[in-house]
Structures are given as C-alpha cells and as structure tokens.
Write a protein that binds this DNA or RNA. Sequence first.
DNA 1: CGGCACGTTGAAGGGCTTCAAGCTCTGTGG
DNA 2: CCACAGAGCTTGAAGCCCTTCAACGTGCCG
Lengths: 232, 232
Amino acid sequence: MTTIREALLACALFADLPDAALDALSGSLRWQHVERGEVLFNQGDEAAFAYLVTAGRLRLVQHTLEGKDVTMATFTSTEVIGLIVVLLGEQYPGTAEALDNAELIVLPAPPLWGLLNTHPAFSLKVIHMLADRLHEAHNRIRELSAERVQRRVARSLLRLVEKVGVAEGHGAVRLDIRLSRQDLAQMNGTTLETISRTLSAWEDDGIVESAREQIVILRPHALVRVADDLPM
Amino acid sequence: MTTIREALLACALFADLPDAALDALSGSLRWQHVERGEVLFNQGDEAAFAYLVTAGRLRLVQHTLEGKDVTMATFTSTEVIGLIVVLLGEQYPGTAEALDNAELIVLPAPPLWGLLNTHPAFSLKVIHMLADRLHEAHNRIRELSAERVQRRVARSLLRLVEKVGVAEGHGAVRLDIRLSRQDLAQMNGTTLETISRTLSAWEDDGIVESAREQIVILRPHALVRVADDLPM
DNA sequence: CGGCACGTTGAAGGGCTTCAAGCTCTGTGG
DNA sequence: CCACAGAGCTTGAAGCCCTTCAACGTGCCG
C-alpha cells in the first residue's frame, strides 16, 4: 500500500517539488477507486478534478455524432488525466473509462493553480507533458493520413508492448491488458472485423497469438517490419 | 509599419506582460522576412528560435518515410510557431514553409526561458496555447478516424473561411489564400485527384466555385450540411 | 445451461487511391 | 510579344482496401 506522498513522488509532474509543497498538497488529497468499465467523467462535464493514476488503466474516448467512439489516449500508472482542462477551467474533452480496476488520486483545481503560480518548474513540467501529448497526437495524425490500417495496428501493438509488455520467453511478449478487437479498432480508426482479419492473418504467419481479449506477440521484429512497411 | 513592441502586444502570449518585461524583450528581437515557398526551418533541426508571425502565412509539414507530406498546422498573423520545441530544447517536429511572403519576429530561447521563470501568467498562456493545439489535433484524429474525405474537406474549407474568408456578396465567401488541390490533399490525408473530383462535384451543385489555387464558397451553409453529414 | 459479449468468416460493394493521359493556365526567357 | 516549359488541374479506368451487413461460432459467467 503506497501513500499519497509516495504516489506523487512517482509522478514526474510532482517529483521535483520541495518537501513543504509536497506535504501541503498530499494532505489535501484523497483516493478514488473505479471498477473496470466504470466511467470516471463524461465528455462535456465541467472539469472539477484531475486524476493521478496509481494502478490500473484508463482511456479517454470521444464520441462522434454518429455514435462511433474514438480512443484518444490511454493512461497508466503515474500518468495524470484531465490536468489541462482543470487548469484552464474547461470541460472534459472526452469520456474517461476504466479498462481495469484502477486506483486514482483526486486532484482538485485550487492547489494545482497554486503550484502553477508559485513553482515555475511545475509549469515547465506541465508544458513538457502537454508537448509530449501533442507530439503523440501529431504522430497519430500523420499515420491516419498516410498509412494503411495494417501498419497502424502494428504500430499500436508495438506501443502497447512498450507500455504493458511482459516477456514470455523465446522473444515473445504478452500484452498484460484486456484488449478486445473493438478496443483496437477504436484506437486505430477502423472496424473490429478488419482487426479480426488482420490478427488472423498475422496468426497464420506466426507473428502473434491471440485469444479473447488477450494478445501475445511471438515475433515482435516481424511486427516492426510491418509497421515500417518492409518486405517480410 | 508596425514596431516589434506593437506586434508583441497583438499576440495573446505577450499582451499581458508588464511594460518593463515587454521593453526588455522587444529590445532584443529582430525581424525576418521569408518569401513564398521558402523554408524557415527543417524537420529535425535543433530548435534555436521560435517565430511570431506578423504577416503572411506559414505551414508546418511532416514528411513520411514514403515521401508523402502531411500538413500538421498552419500559422497566421499573431500566432507563434516553434515555441514549445524552443522552450524544451527539442528538435523541430516538422518543416516550416511560407505559403505567402511573410514577416516574422525572431524569438531566441533565452529570453523566453526568462519569462517562463519569472512570469507565471506567461506559463499559463503557453499552457493555454498548447491545450488549444492539442484540442485541434484531437479533433483531426477523430475526423480522420471516423469520417469520409468529403466531410473532412468540407470542414477544412469552413475552417479556412473562419481564418481567411472574405465576403463576396450574396453570402459568398472567397478564401484569401493561394490554395492548391495538393495543399488541400495534404491537409486532409488524401490525394489531389480526390480533392479535384470533390470540388468538381460541389461546383456542379453550385456550392463552390474554384479556379487555379483559388476557391470561392458560394453557399457556405450547404458546405456546413456536408460537414455535418446532413441530407442536402 | 442459456444468454450475451466477443470473435470469425464470407460476400458485396463503395470510397478512395493509383496510374495514365491530356488539358489549361502562368510565367519566363528568347 | 510569343512560345514553350512546367505547374496545376481534370477526367477516366482499374482495382484494392476497407467497410458494412450478415450469419454463425465460442467461451465466459450468472
């Protein structure tokens, strides 16, 4: 069982704060638990809180008018969700949904504003975080603009390897996350049928092995070749 | 002829700085001119300067490995290009190219760092700017993920109406910018042929009128209906 | 054990890309 | 001032990737 203070220290945003500020902050915070599938906040709600993830995974989805869902980002341990909108007093840009049972620390707006005004280093961290997200977003735009579904799926699997990969021996990597075809489709702007066909094809080639909401990458290097559009 | 000081005041990022800071800053800056088609900086270069646009337009493009270009953003008067990468000491994420003859103010890194450390309000402005860009990027991701080319093109034309639209009478709006089919294609992740066909179809419907690098929207409302996927 | 979510597979079709050919306009240099 | 090269644009044809619809299989969990 970690304390709030320890959790803050594990997060790059807060790690460099002076002890006093850290103590003051951690004293005013509380935990929150969300169950798998539960919604943390809804698109359009006034943003009252940001959340530091300490365990489990969340995703931020936007709904289109036609009812399609698009996954904008996923958040794991030590990442903060909803920070920017809280700092700027805006509405949540999407719906946050728990992918696993997750533990969060609730971050209300006022103390965060305080940090912003008194600790330039904190502002810089926020800017850094935002810059990284913008970078990621631009990467996705480039991929969606110029690349085929296969490549995008390959790439997102490789990203998941980085985030939640667990070595399985013989170079194989298991993705330690419940991940449905539908989830992958939403992450890549495609349909679950196409994902299913793609995975089946890769399974025939011995590149991956997949079961219900469960994927093992047998030959990561082959997936890299797909992602880079190189001949097999 | 505007002065550097006036140009800074016109930009939301610097408008609220105290006079002293503004004077100190404006004293250390210089102008730069770029011709249409000229490259301001290249993808991968170490970011030494940010640039405040005071006249003309620039675009930020990323090149893919296959040689396709994807337009990530366009910058007009009072907007700042390259700010984040300069603040964080990174490399330029794309190539900046002038769409018109443009006037810029060169912003070196050190004074910007200074502002960040001494003026919390400036940090907040930077965060705000970044948040807006992230928002835009997410909108594009959602559109690219879920929408057909027609809708995306309609939407980007409507955005251009906001940015560079000039009333032409009878509700028509001319886009005051040289805009080739190729440009529109790069902005929407499609090909110039598809753009050409789309515009031709709209021209048949009396929605737009287009000539070489020149577009007039005759019935903006009809374009809104396309963008919203409503029946005509 | 039955319902339901997840997954697979087939078939049809359409939107878009790609390749190709030719056309129109612009600007430039002789 | 004209000719011509080249950039921008149009249009056709072929085809593929992907979506959509549909039916069925599978396995989990109450």
